[in-house]
Structures are given as C-alpha cells and as structure tokens.
Amino acid sequence: MTETIATPETDDLARHASKMAKKKAARDKIMAGKEGEKGMIIVHTGAGKGKSSSGFGMILRCVAHGMPCAVVQFIKGAWDTGERRLLTTHFSDLCQFHAMGEGFTWETQDKARDIAAAKAGWEKAKELIRDPAIRMVLLDEINIALRYDYLDLSEVLAFLAEEKPPLTHVVLTGRNAAEGLIEAADLVTEMTLIKHPFRSGIKAQVGVEF
C-alpha cells in the first residue's frame, strides 16, 4: 500500500474539503426546512442601473421555462428597446407586452396625460395579474408613477394583497420605491449607483441601456 505523505498542499486540500462538507451540511439543513411554492412580490429600486434589466432577465427565465408572463411598461412606452423587440418578435406566444407609457414626465409636459397613461397601465396590469395562467407580471417603472402620485399606493397594495393569485410573481421596478411597497414585498433589491457614464458625457448606448 502506498502511504500518503502529508504536505502543506494536501493539508490545505483536506481543510478545504472539511470546510465545504460542513458548509454543505448546514445548507442542507436550512433547505430541509423550505417547502412549497409562493408567488412573490419583487421590488427592484435604487439609483443604480439595472432595475429594469434584472426584471427582464426574470421574464426571459420564465420564457425559457415555458411559463406565460407579461410586461406592462409605465414610462418607457415610446422607446424602441431590445427587450421589446425580442419579446414581441420571438416570444409573443408566451409573453404579452404592453407599452402604456408615453415617455418621462419632462418629455410629455402634461400631467393629466401622464396620469391617464399610468391609470390605463394599472388597469391592464390588474387584468394580467388576475389571470392565474400568467405566472409573472413585470410592472416596469411603476415606482415612478407611484412616486408622482399618478397611482394610489394604497390601492396597489390592497390589490396585490387581496387579488394576486397565490403562485403569480409580480415584479415592480423604478427608483424611490415607497416604504409601504418595500414592507409588503417578499424580495427587495436596491441598485447602488457607484459610477455612470452619463455623468461623463456619454449618452445611452444600444445594448447597454436599451
């Protein structure tokens, strides 16, 4: 029998294996206490980039799993984005796409029009969320509509609490998410701004921003 001679390298590998085995046992114990499925309320907020991008990443996961889903855009409706092109051109059978916004408020310069667009978007969102066959609904930039009081926060929260089907996920994106929405959510992620090219005079780039 060949005797294994301990070396600093083999000792390090043994310590690593022991550490990972303990970590796996602890993880398995935690996972053993998790069961069932739940439709989550998910919020992406913060000043950093990536809120909508992350939401669309979840939508594409749903598409990949053959799960019906839907998107309602509250602000960027007039934009020709890559996400919109991809979903409407190739996956319209699985993902409904409703661009209800008309641009940012400084572009429309018409508060009544912005409020009407936001309310129309919310009515469409409620219709989609009520359908139990749709497993995820992305409400892109709805937090902005809520921040400007174009929509009633208490109405949105009441609807999500009372009418959202148990297995439906709802993703709400946009800066300055309301505290009440954060409290009601199951998953909240805040995107932190560290550096952005716009501040250096670089405009939005195709494939990065839209």
Results as ranks from 00 to 15, higher is better:
residue 25 A to P: 06
residue 59 I to H: 00
residue 125 A to L: 07
residue 78 A to G: 15
residue 109 Q to F: 07
residue 154 S to G: 12
residue 43 V to G: 04
residue 101 G to H: 03
residue 97 F to V: 15
residue 117 A to M: 10
residue 117 A to P: 06
residue 170 V to A: 03
residue 49 K to E: 09
residue 161 A to E: 02
residue 97 F to W: 13
residue 200 S to R: 15
residue 113 R to M: 10
residue 202 I to W: 07
residue 181 L to V: 03
residue 205 Q to F: 03
residue 191 M to P: 14
residue 201 G to P: 04
residue 172 L to M: 03
residue 126 K to M: 11
residue 187 L to S: 11
residue 47 A to Q: 15
residue 150 Y to H: 05
residue 50 G to Q: 04
residue 53 S to Q: 13
residue 75 I to C: 10
residue 175 R to Q: 04
residue 144 I to L: 06
residue 11 D to G: 08
residue 151 L to F: 05
residue 198 F to Y: 07
residue 85 R to F: 05
residue 123 E to S: 10
residue 202 I to A: 12
residue 85 R to K: 14
residue 155 E to C: 10
residue 13 L to D: 13
residue 40 M to K: 14
residue 3 E to I: 11
residue 112 A to T: 06
residue 111 K to I: 08
residue 22 K to L: 14
residue 173 T to E: 01
residue 138 L to K: 00
residue 117 A to V: 05
residue 17 A to W: 08
residue 140 D to H: 02
residue 192 T to E: 14
residue 191 M to T: 14
residue 39 G to K: 04
residue 207 G to V: 05
residue 41 I to H: 09
residue 2 T to N: 12
residue 49 K to Q: 12
residue 52 S to Y: 07
residue 127 E to Y: 07
residue 63 V to K: 06
residue 41 I to K: 08
residue 157 L to N: 02
residue 189 T to S: 15
residue 153 L to C: 13
residue 60 L to M: 08
residue 68 P to E: 09
residue 87 L to V: 06
residue 4 T to Y: 07
residue 25 A to N: 11
residue 95 C to H: 09
residue 147 R to Y: 11
residue 205 Q to C: 05
residue 80 D to W: 06
residue 54 S to V: 08
residue 7 T to S: 02
residue 29 K to G: 01
residue 22 K to T: 13
residue 180 G to I: 03
residue 99 A to T: 02
residue 194 I to K: 09
residue 10 T to D: 02
residue 179 E to R: 13
residue 12 D to C: 14
residue 39 G to Y: 05
residue 90 H to D: 15
residue 194 I to T: 12
residue 184 A to M: 04
residue 85 R to T: 12
residue 89 T to N: 13
residue 105 T to A: 14
residue 204 A to W: 04
residue 173 T to F: 00
residue 37 E to M: 15
residue 204 A to D: 06
residue 132 P to I: 02
residue 34 K to N: 09
residue 70 A to I: 11
residue 130 R to L: 12
residue 155 E to V: 14
residue 80 D to H: 13
residue 83 E to L: 00
residue 17 A to I: 10
residue 32 A to W: 03
residue 151 L to H: 04
residue 164 K to T: 04
residue 158 A to K: 07
residue 25 A to D: 10
residue 160 L to V: 00
residue 31 M to P: 01
residue 152 D to H: 12
residue 6 A to E: 07
residue 125 A to I: 07
residue 58 M to I: 02
residue 27 R to G: 06
